[in-house]
Simulated scan of single mutants.
Amino acid sequence: MARPGVYQQVLLSDLQLRPLAEEDLPSVLDIERQGYSHPWSEAVFLDCFKDSYRLWAASHGDRLAGYAVVAYMAGEAHLLNLCVHPLARGQGVGRYLLKHLLATAAHEGMSQLLLEVRISNRPAIDLYRREGFHEIGQRPGYYPAPDGREDALVMVRTLSR
């Protein structure tokens, strides 16, 4: 069990970015449950370990600080999940992961990165806007919510090769 405050002094220079491995799933599922009201299941994560997906881990020492899941299809990247451990939030971990997956997708020839984000998730929307994303639409009732369904903003950023 993580000690309280273990992530309070995360330095980006101490973070290691690497491909997410199946052995990371217990930590991923723990973070997922803490981060979302309707978390992905282990089966959903396992289904993402395919050639057309990129799964990234941001680790601080031997602890997972965050992860991202991106699908590649028809020359476009689609960010499906980006989550940071609650104790590591607000320290740049999410931005660090996002910048890495943007650079990797561009390097691998993707033309743009598309994502959906809960309309209520202001910190994520603000991050995406600061990183050059713009809104291209909404998906009504896209996300399950405690009181029914919640709309998603659809955002995109063009990638330069």
Rank of each mutant, 00 (worst) to 15 (best):
M1F: 10
A2Y: 13
P4K: 08
G5A: 08
G5L: 10
Q8V: 08
Q9M: 11
L11N: 12
L15V: 04
L17I: 14
L20S: 07
L25R: 04
L25Q: 09
P26H: 08
S27Y: 02
L29E: 03
L29I: 01
E32V: 05
E32L: 04
G35K: 00
G35M: 04
G35E: 08
Y36R: 07
W40H: 09
S41W: 06
E42A: 12
A43E: 15
D47L: 03
D47Y: 09
C48W: 14
F49S: 09
S52P: 00
Y53G: 07
W56F: 12
H60A: 14
R63A: 14
V69L: 14
A74K: 08
G75R: 01
L79R: 05
L80R: 09
N81R: 14
V84C: 06
V84A: 06
H85P: 11
P86H: 09
L87M: 13
L87N: 06
A88K: 03
G92S: 10
R95G: 15
L98K: 09
K99T: 13
H100K: 15
A105K: 03
A105W: 01
A105Q: 01
L113I: 15
L114D: 09
V117M: 07
R118C: 02
S120G: 06
N121C: 00
I125E: 11
R129I: 02
G132M: 04
Q138R: 15
P140T: 05
Y142G: 00
Y142R: 01
P144L: 11
A145G: 11
P146D: 10
G148P: 11
G148T: 09
D151A: 10
D151C: 02
R157M: 02
L159R: 01
R161F: 04
